[in-house]
Design a protein around this nucleic acid. Structure first.
Length: 115
DNA sequence: ACGCTGACTATTA
DNA sequence: CTAATAGCCAGCG
């Protein structure tokens, strides 16, 4: 089961802030964010944090966060499974079969922004 | 307080 | 190539 009404305590809040730093037309991976936070081994927590992002008062571009291969693994958690892909395509990101095309080209490194 | 689960990643077989 | 296993951390019952 997955916790829904949780409260941002620390790690989650960091994930949300990093996710908001993702520029349009760019995407990042859970591992990249986790690494940026220092918990690079806990990429799961990042994805889980996204679950709570849904509840955040601010818009968290969770649709710009995908797994390491650019696969839209989290699309199932959206209101609609097509919303994630639709949003990415609107930003100029090509998506095919739930996977980001040219993932390496649109990949955005969070650590780079915090540099 | 303990155990289970999970939108991941890397390694091994 | 695919399948299985281990590591990580935090919230809920």
């Amino acid at each position: 089961m997955v916790p829904s009404g949780k409260r941002e305590g620390s790690f989650f809040d960091l994930v949300y802030q990093v996710a908001r730093q993702i520029p349009e037309g760019r995407v990042t991976s859970y591992g990249a964010i986790a690494s940026c936070l220092g918990t690079k081994l806990s990429a799961r927590m990042v994805g889980w944090a996204m679950n709570g992002a849904h509840d955040q008062p601010e818009h968290v571009p969770a649709h710009r966060v995908v797994n390491r291969v650019g696969l839209l693994t989290g699309r199932h958690h959206f209101k609609t499974p097509t919303e994630m892909q639709d949003l990415l395509e609107k930003e100029g990101i090509k998506v095919e079969e739930n996977k980001i095309v040219d993932f390496e080209k649109v990949f955005w490194d969070p650590a780079k922004s915090l540099l």
